[in-house]
Measured scan of single mutants.
Amino acid sequence: PTIVLKVSPEELKALEKAGVEIEKIEKNEDGELYITLTPEALKKAGFE
């Protein structure tokens, strides 16, 4: 199962800087950012 999270541009930068593997980055028509994370990326980021 993949996880989709709504993030701010600042959060996205912080995640990328931390080396979190982001599978997909999407922006909706309201300009909101959503990222898709794999279970492996979540484990690496410390989420179980």
Rank of each mutant, 00 (worst) to 15 (best):
E23S: 09
L12G: 01
T2G: 09
A14G: 09
E26G: 06
P39R: 14
Y34H: 06
E21R: 06
Y34W: 14
P1D: 10
I35P: 00
I25D: 00
I35C: 04
V7Q: 01
K6M: 12
S8K: 07
L12A: 03
G31M: 03
I35W: 00
D30V: 12
L42Y: 15
E23N: 10
K6Q: 11
E16Y: 13
L5M: 14
T2S: 13
K17W: 07
E48R: 01
T2E: 07
I35G: 00
V4C: 13
F47E: 09
P1T: 12
E21D: 11
K43Y: 05
D30Q: 12
S8F: 04
E48W: 01
E23D: 07
I35Q: 00
K13M: 13
E11Y: 15
P39K: 15
E16H: 08
E26S: 09
A45C: 11
I35N: 00
E26V: 11
Y34T: 10
A41F: 04
N28K: 11
K43V: 12
E32H: 14
I22R: 00
A18E: 05
A14Y: 15
E40W: 01
L37F: 06
E29F: 10
L12W: 06
L5D: 00
I22M: 07
D30G: 10
K17G: 08
E11A: 14
V7A: 02
K43H: 12
K13H: 10
E26P: 01
E11D: 13
L42D: 02
L33V: 14
E40R: 02
K44S: 02
K44W: 01
A14E: 14
E21T: 07
K44R: 02
E10I: 13
K27S: 12
P1V: 10
T38Y: 02
K24V: 07
V20Y: 02
L5I: 12
F47I: 15
L33H: 06
K44G: 04
I35M: 02
A18H: 09
D30E: 12
K17L: 10
L33D: 02
E10G: 09
K13L: 11
N28D: 12
E16V: 12
V7N: 00
L37E: 00
V20L: 10
I22T: 02
E23R: 08
V4G: 04
I35E: 00
A41M: 14
P9M: 08
L42E: 04
K17D: 10
V4D: 04
E21V: 05
E11H: 13
V4T: 11
L5A: 06
E11S: 08
V20D: 00
V4Y: 06
G19H: 08
K17R: 11
V4M: 09
E26N: 07
K24G: 07
T36C: 07
G19Y: 04
T36H: 13
L15H: 01
E48N: 02
L42K: 05
I22L: 06
L33Y: 14
L33S: 04
E29C: 06
G46Q: 04
D30I: 13
E23M: 07
G46V: 02
D30Y: 13
E16Q: 12
G19V: 02
E10W: 06
E40C: 06
A41P: 01
L37R: 00
A41E: 15
P9S: 11
I35Y: 00
L33C: 09
I22A: 02
I35K: 00
K44M: 02
L42W: 13
G31K: 04
E21G: 06
I22K: 00
L12T: 01
L42A: 15
K6C: 14
V20P: 00
G31Y: 03
A14V: 15
G31S: 03
S8A: 05
A45Q: 03
D30R: 13
A18G: 09
A18S: 09
E16R: 11
E32Q: 08
I35H: 00
A14C: 15
I35F: 01
G31N: 08
V7R: 00
K43M: 14
E23C: 11
K6I: 08
E16L: 09
V7E: 00
V7F: 02
E40T: 04
E11N: 06
S8P: 01
L37N: 00
S8I: 03
K27L: 12
A18F: 10
A45N: 04
E21M: 06
S8V: 03
E16N: 11
F47A: 10
E23A: 09
L37A: 09
E11T: 15
G31H: 03
I22D: 00
P9G: 09
L37C: 04
P39H: 15
I25Y: 06
G31W: 02
Y34S: 07
E10T: 12
T38E: 05
K44C: 05
V4F: 06
E26L: 07
V7W: 01
E16D: 05
T38G: 06
L5G: 01
L12V: 05
L37G: 01
G31Q: 03
F47L: 15
G19S: 06
T38H: 03
N28S: 08
E32K: 06
A41V: 03
V4S: 09
E10M: 12
I25Q: 04
P1I: 12
P39L: 15
K44I: 02
P1G: 13
E40K: 04
K44A: 02
E29P: 09
E16C: 08
N28L: 11
K43F: 05
K13F: 10
T36I: 05
A45K: 03
A45I: 08
E23Q: 09
K13E: 13
K27F: 14
E21I: 06
D30W: 15
T36S: 08
L15I: 14
T36L: 04
K24N: 11
N28G: 10
G31V: 01
P9I: 14
P39W: 15
G46Y: 03
K43W: 04
I25H: 03
T2C: 14
L37K: 00
K24D: 05
T36F: 12
P1A: 10
G31F: 02
L33F: 12
G46S: 02
E10Y: 05
K27W: 13
I25W: 06
K24A: 12
E10N: 10
L37M: 12
P1N: 10
T38Q: 04
L33P: 01
T38D: 05
I3W: 12
L5E: 01
T36A: 04
K17T: 09
A18V: 05
E40V: 03
S8H: 06
P39A: 14
K17F: 09
E48A: 02
A14F: 15
P9D: 10
N28A: 13
L5R: 15
K44T: 03
F47C: 15
I22S: 01
E21A: 08
L15A: 03
D30F: 14
L42G: 07
F47Y: 06
E26A: 08
G19L: 05
K24Y: 07
L5P: 00
A18R: 15
T2L: 13
K6G: 05
L15G: 00
K6D: 01
T2I: 09
G31C: 06
